[in-house]
Structures are given as structure tokens and as C-alpha cells.
Design a protein around this nucleic acid. Structure first.
Length: 426
RNA sequence: GGAGAGAUGACAGAGUGGCCGAUUGUGCAGCACUGGAAAUGCUGUGUCCGGGUAACCGGACCGGGGGUUCGAAUCCCCCUCUCUCCGCCA
């Protein structure tokens, strides 16, 4: 959510930003609703003030005066109630309109859609195969690593059982990421896999409705989380943070659940796009200083890259274009890993995402910070990034490390947890 | 799941219908005292909304939401959370 004052003071900029991001939002309605709201607040406050005066006069009034004053107070109370009700309606509509407006955008972000992202750099050598590389589904079948049929039978299409070495491989990825993050000074968490809808909304997800990406639990205000960004961001909901303890850097392990509504037919083969996966997520709270949150953003990206470098998986980093940022992100860097089994001769596939959401999430979650030298509080900045998203990391790992005989070389950094150098059939 | 107790400012802890945005203590900040400090004394010390260049003014907030009343931290109802005991359980 953007600041109301900011929206009204920068109407043209906000409208242009909506256009670049491909979002329809009614700025004029927001401005109008705000004016209506302010007028009503003034009126209601005035009525309340008069009512307080009347009430205060009653204990001191003579017996003759009392009935009249009580009647006057009764009438004022009715007017206050009416004004409050009207105000509540306006505020609800205002909040609704205001919530549709996406975050502002970093000036360096390229304009456009998915294909307009700018490539910042590439890393690593793509593997040269002397044979026709298989995709991860074929590799996994040969090594008996994933049971899709059982997943479909037990839960449905888009669910899967990891088996045998894949289980150890996933645990190894998690262990590796958590170990790395601890050494970087992150506080480690395992998180709830469910969260209140209010937290989901604060982070920027829509838990209910047709287009939702979220599984919600019937008859409760709970939903399965789509990422630990939700729960890690919820940790400080309604809190006032002391600036001296910022930045807070959290890492959380969770399952992630996504309905993938509207994604039917898109890369449905294998575990690239699934309804449930395991992920280690980074989350940071900083002071609302753009230089600082941008620096933390760069640092999160650095850690993401170091993880893929350690796994020796070639990748490129992209600066996501305006139309692909979603609502909360001010800027978003994605790592796309090289996946030799995708498409005709290999393609890049998104494996991580790092966003600076500035104060957009903090405003809705009411996460503020205080500096003892300054009066009042400010909304914090929040950032998030993927340390390791297991399903997609497995795709990249299996496809890049495959050998002609169908075996897969285990990256050195994972061997302590997997317990072997090469995965072979049988 | 059952029974009971509780939720008040940074913390502790008063407050059972108007004099309470809230006693007091601790903490914190400033000032005084001091060679300096401790101790002591004095003063100050929340957030949010609206108006105002500002000083300031008005309003809201005593876990959350409803209600009673001219008037609610205080009375009533619902919910949430915490603690204690019992039951159950990985």
C-alpha cells in the first residue's frame, strides 16, 4: 500500500507508474474518497467534541437543567454514530482503491513485460554434452527419484513424492542453504505453513477470490502459505522496531502451496511448476532509507548467487521489468538457472527472486521503526529473496549434472549430506 | 476438550460509571547539586487520525469487536491470547 498523502501529492506519477506496471487503478477515486473522508472526520470530531462538553456539564448542572442536557447529549450521540457509520463505509472503499495501487518503481527497472527484463550478468559455463541431454523427468525416472503417479493418486495433479536419493538431495539443499545463511548472520526459523488472511493480504497476496494463487482453509481465516515471506513478514506485524536493531535478517524454511490458477498448460511437465514445494526464504527488515534497503537488496542477491555458484549451476541475473513486478516490489532481481532439459536445446528457468518492497508491505502490516533521536515512527522497509527453492533447484541440478549413462553427479557442497558422489540407478 | 485466573503506557503495577490519556514506582532524557561521578531534587517522557507554516487545537486509543449510558479502562455480550490445574496426545 502506498501512502495516501503521497498518492494525492503525486497523482500523475502514480498514474504513470500504474500504466507502466499494467495495473488498473482509479487514482481520482482515491483522491475524492480521501477528501470525503477528511470532511467526515472533521464533522464527526466536532460532534464528538460537543457531546463531550454536554456530558461534562451534566454533573455540574442543576436538577432543572439536567433533562434538557441529557436529551441534547442523546441527540448528539445519534449524530456521532451516524457520521461514524458513513465514515467507515468511505474508509473501506478508500482502502480497497488504495490497495489496488502498486508500489512505485526503481528508476533503473526496465519498462515492459516478461521479455523486457534486462540481463544484468551471467555466470558459469553451460555444460557441453556429448549426448542428447534428458530433462529432469527422464533423469528422475531412470534413478527412481520422483513418483508423480502416486502424487496424483493421493493428492492430485501437481503433487509428487520425492523418493530415495531425491529426498536426501532436498534435505541437503535445505541444510546447505541454512548453514550458509547462519554464517551470514541470519536468524533461522522454521515457520508455520498456515497464516491468517490478514497477514497474507499485508504481504500482498489475495487469499480468496477467483484468481487466487492461495489455498484457503474453509470456515477459518487461515490459508496455506505460498512462501515463508508471508510468515517471516508477519513476525513483526503491528510491532515498533528499534532502529538500532535493524536490519533484521531472517531465514525461514517452509512448505509453499500454490494453486497455479491460470497457469494450466504452462510447463506442467515435471516439478518445475507444482502445487507444493519446500523453500528456504530470506527476509529482511531495514530502516526506511532507500540507500540502505537497496544495499540489503544487493546483499540478498549476492547470497543467492553464491548459493548457485557453490552448486556450480550456470545462471543469469535479470532485472525484472515493470509489468512483471507484481504489487509490492519496488525492484526485483531474479536468478534464472540454466536448465539443459527445457525446450529444444535448454532454456533458463527462474529459480530465485529477490525483492525490495520498500515500505509497501510494512504500511499494510503496520510495521514501524523508531529512532530515539527523532520524534514519531516510520514504516520499515521489507525485502525478501529465495535462498533455495527445492523443486526448481532440483530441476537445474539434475539436468546440469547428468551424465551419458543416466547417472547424476552430486555437487561437492551437498555430498556431506547426501553421502555419495554420484547418483546411479539401482 | 473441561475448570479457573488474567490482558492497562518501555517495564512493573493502581484504578469498579463523570475530577482518568490514566496514581505510583522503575527506566529513559534534560536541568540543578558535584572537581567529576554516585546519591538526591526538579522537569519532561506514547501512538494514530484531522486541521494549522508553526506554537498549538480537536478527536481516537487501557487485548480485539459489539452493546448499555448524556457520559465507560470501569457495567453487559462475543472473540482472541497468556497463565494455572485436569484430561488427551506426536
Amino acid at each position: 500500500m502506498l501512502d495516501l498523502q503521497f498518492i494525492c501529492d503525486h497523482r500523475d506519477e502514480v498514474a504513470e507508474n500504474c500504466r507502466l506496471r499494467g495495473v488498473t487503478a482509479d487514482i481520482d477515486a482515491v483522491v475524492q474518497l480521501r477528501e470525503d473522508r477528511n470532511g467526515l472526520i472533521a464533522r464527526a470530531d466536532e460532534l464528538r467534541h460537543r457531546q463531550k462538553e454536554v456530558s461534562a456539564a451534566i454533573p455540574k448542572a442543576s436538577a432543572d437543567e439536567r433533562p434538557g442536557l441529557i436529551e441534547q447529549g442523546r441527540e448528539l450521540r445519534a449524530e456521532v454514530t451516524a457520521a461514524d457509520e458513513k465514515l467507515r463505509g468511505i474508509e473501506e472503499r478508500l482502502r480497497e482503491e488504495q490497495s489496488r495501487i502498486p508500489n512505485m518503481t526503481h528508476p533503473d527497472v526496465p519498462v515492459g513485460g516478461e521479455d523486457d527484463a534486462s540481463e544484468i550478468r551471467t555466470w558459469g559455463e553451460r555444460p557441453q554434452f556429448s549426448f542428447q541431454p534428458r530433462d529432469h523427468v527422464d533423469i528422475a525416472a531412470h534413478l527412481d527419484l520422483i513418483d508423480f503417479e502416486a502424487g496424483a493418486r493421493v493428492t492430485g495433479s501437481g503433487f509428487y513424492f520425492l523418493k530415495n536419493d531425491a529426498v536426501l538431495l532436498e534435505m541437503a539443499l535445505v541444510q546447505f542453504a541454512l548453514t550458509k545463511l547462519r554464517s551470514e548472520g541470519f536468524t533461522l526459523f522454521t515457520t508455520p505453513d498456515l497464516a491468517r488472511d490478514s497477514v497474507l493480504e499485508g504481504i500482498g497476496f489475495s487469499p480468496r477470490g477467483n484468481e487466487t494463487q492461495i489455498y484457503s482453509v474453509a470456515e477459518t481465516d487461515l490459508s496455506l502459505v505460498a512462501t515463508a515471506e508471508i510468515t517471516l513478514g508477519g513476525i513483526q506485524k503491528d510491532q515498533v522496531l528499534n532502529e538500532s536493531e535493524l536490519p533484521l535478517r531472517y531465514a525461514g524454511l517452509s512448505h509453499c502451496f500454490r494453486t497455479e490458477a491460470g497457469a494450466a498448460g504452462r510447463a506442467t511437465r515435471g516439478i518445475y511448476r507444482v502445487h507444493q514445494f519446500t523453500k528456504v526464504e530470506m527476509f529482511a527488515y531495514t530502516t526506511p532509507d532507500p540507500a540502505l534497503s537497496n544495499a540489503v537488496h544487493a546483499d540478498i542477491l549476492r547470497i543467492e548467487e553464491e548459493i548457485f555458484q557453490a552448486l556450480k549451476i550456470p545462471y543469469r541475473v535479470i532485472d525484472t521489468a515493470t509489468g512483471d513486478l507484481g504489487g509490492p516490489a519496488y525492484r526485483k532481481f531474479d536468478i534464472e538457472a540454466w536448465m539443459p532439459g527445457r525446450g529444444e536445446a535448454g532454456e533458463y528457468g527462474e529459480v530465485t527472486s529477490a525483492s525490495n518492497c520498500t515500505d509497501y508491505q510494512a504500511r499494510r502490516l503496520n510495521i514501524r521503526c523508531r529512532n530515539p533521536d527523532r520524534k514519531g515512527t516510520q514504516f520499515a522497509h521489507t525485502l525478501n529473496g529465495t535462498a533455495i527453492s527445492c523443486a526448481r533447484a532440483l530441476v537445474a541440478l539434475l539436468e546440469n549434472n547428468q551424465q551419458e549413462d543416466g547417472s547424476v553427479v552430486v555437487p561437492e557442497v551437498l555430498r556431506p549430506w547426501v553421502g555419495r558422489d554420484v547418483l546411479t540407478a539401482g
